[in-house]
Design a protein around this nucleic acid. Structure first.
Lengths: 248, 248
DNA sequence: AGACTGTATGCTGTAGGCAGTTGACGAAAA
DNA sequence: TTTTCGTCAACTGCCTACAGCATACAGTCT
């Protein structure tokens, strides 16, 4: 029962703990990685993390594997886990892929649209614009991601949605004070996108989304250029995990 | 300072256990899943697997997490692991996404082409056609996947390549006696693709790859239609894991 | 008969501990 | 001084054990 320490990080008191400990550890570590408390390239000793979070090494190991699956940490067999060191190049590639996936989603959404879905999109758009007016940055960011998620959902391709979600999470590395900068223009594009989807114009919807995401991408990159290059690591390279495909 | 030289170990000395046990377990289980020995929807009790493979539950758990990350098994916290039950719909979505990723890769490859890369593509193409002539199915399949992997590599976008590899692995569910059926036509398309890449015609390269992968996709689907629907599950209800998108 | 409750069993999630390996540090030799 | 070797500390990978929950079953009550 009593799980010490961890509760302090996840402000989710109340109920016992419906979710396995590893999930909490996952979020706690992710939080520390995104916030920069655990730095890129840093070696993550299981014992330290276990002590820090007040749990045993087992849930730590499992959380690290989950984090590895999403690209937050690199696992080197026999050497442990290291915080993944993102590069500007990788950010560019992630954003490019995200643009690709979102564009396709918009295209499919235009073909699979439903009245209910369109209503949700319009509601989110209104909410977002209202948040903008009120200088409610968090609200606008939330509405934005919900809107994009909804487009994904309307695309009808769950695999596409999973991959996009995965990519979007990884982009969070490059913390996002970005969204707020695009401001009004972004939401006007959203409006145009919804209209195109409503009209069932797949080509136009895709084009708008492509332009939309590319705008964001360029904004990210210009900001990244200004920041420090996020220095690689202390240690050097190591072997990659199996390339995957191959024969038969 | 912190961590020592990891690079020196890349040569992979021939120690007793070059690879963690979990990797072996991963492959053993994957083998049994693909071969159908472990059936879709089947509950995987850690204790049984541990006994079957002669290891403890720990490496089993870690292997199951890896398998879950690649979509081979579904993890339901508190209920254990179940062999993922693929559906025709999912196959369709996977293949659609793969087509999208490959198309983009071809487009980028046309822009980033190098003489060395083109040479490798042509070599693989020759090898593949030769294998076809000789009725060497395995050889042709291998050359095929290597060729596609090379196009991915030439795209210069590693993230794109990772996602594509991930998707391709999952498609293996639907065992692939398919490739052999497209036969000669497939390799002629490869030739045209390489020419387009060599010419730096991104639009054409993308178009060819799109057509190429869509052909394969339709072939897959027509075959899937004939097979049994891969019945869902034995047990009754199952909780879904958080869909990842939605909400907040 | 049907529904409900108490109990038993199996499994997951977690803890703790041990052995093998890896890398670092320091001493000895060239 | 530079190089090589031996020792030591730390960490990973793995195993065993335990506590809590979920499910299934049996018995009881309505």
């Amino acid at each position: 029962m009593s799980r010490p320490d961890l509760a302090s990080t996840t402000a989710a008191p109340k109920i016992a703990r419906p979710v396995p400990l590893r999930e909490s550890v996952f979020e706690a570590l992710l939080e520390q990685i995104i916030s920069g408390h655990l730095r890129p390239g840093q070696h993550l000793a299981e014992s330290e993390l276990a002590e820090m979070l007040g749990v045993s090494r087992q849930p730590i190991r499992e959380a690290l594997q989950l984090l590895s699956g999403e690209g937050w940490v690199d696992l080197h067999p026999g050497h442990g886990a290291f915080v993944h060191a993102p590069t500007a190049e990788e950010a560019d590639q992630l954003l490019a892929v995200r643009a690709l996936l979102e564009t396709e989603a918009a295209r499919l959404a235009a073909l699979n649209r439903t009245d209910e879905g369109l209503a949700r999109l319009r509601a989110l758009c209104s909410r977002g614009m209202a948040a903008m007016e009120a200088d409610d940055v968090d609200g606008a960011v939330t509405a934005n991601s919900q809107l994009h998620a909804t487009v994904m959902e309307l695309s009808g391709n769950a695999v596409l949605g999973d991959l996009a979600a995965q990519v979007s999470r990884r982009v969070r590395w490059y913390h996002t004070p970005v969204a707020r900068q695009r401001g009004r223009a972004s939401w006007e594009e959203h409006t145009a996108l919804i209209d195109a989807i409503a009209a069932g114009d797949a080509g136009l919807a895709g084009e708008i989304m492509k332009n939309h995401t590319e705008q964001t991408r360029h904004l990210y990159l210009s900001q990244l250029g200004e920041e420090e290059p996020v220095e690689p690591i202390p240690s050097k390279r190591r072997k990659r995990r199996a390339p995957a495909s191959f024969g038969s």
